[in-house]
């Protein structure tokens, strides 16, 4: 999985590929690094993410809780249909703030 981080009003992390046991750890390291540097408002852009297993979901929830505990938030945007289905079925749409586009997600922090 490829991870690209952009700095804006918030930190935007673009996920590319698949979120599984191995890449979930890579994501954790990247996001924990942002949070430890005080960048606690984070958007994960899922536009290029085609797959996540439960290990990926587990990591997302852990990072969401971490961002919240530091006074920030972790929001998601641009989910592909397969991941929309996954988040709907697991009721995780009730946990995360999810936006259709990156612009919408950025605007939500303003």
């Amino acid at each position: 999985m490829e991870i690209i981080t952009k700095e804006n009003i918030v930190s935007i992390v673009e996920l590319n590929g698949e979120l599984d046991n191995e890449s979930a750890e890579e994501l954790r390291i990247n996001v924990e690094d942002l949070i430890s540097n005080g960048k606690v408002n984070i958007i994960l852009n899922f536009n290029e993410l085609s797959y996540s297993n439960s290990a990926g979901l587990r990591e997302l929830i852990a990072l969401y809780k971490l961002a919240n505990s530091k006074g920030g938030d972790l929001r998601l945007c641009s989910l592909q249909p397969q991941l929309e289905d996954l988040f709907s079925f697991t009721n995780l749409k009730k946990v995360f703030n999810i936006y259709p586009t990156e612009e919408d997600a950025v605007a939500s922090f303003e």
Partner: peptide
């Protein structure tokens, strides 16, 4: 049940549910 509102913030417990789905 990981879909129960009480358990939504639990990090684990979704694998078995997804297999069944």
């Amino acid at each position: 049940d990981p879909k129960d509102p009480e358990n939504l913030n639990n990090e684990g417990g979704r694998g078995v549910l997804l297999m069944a789905y």
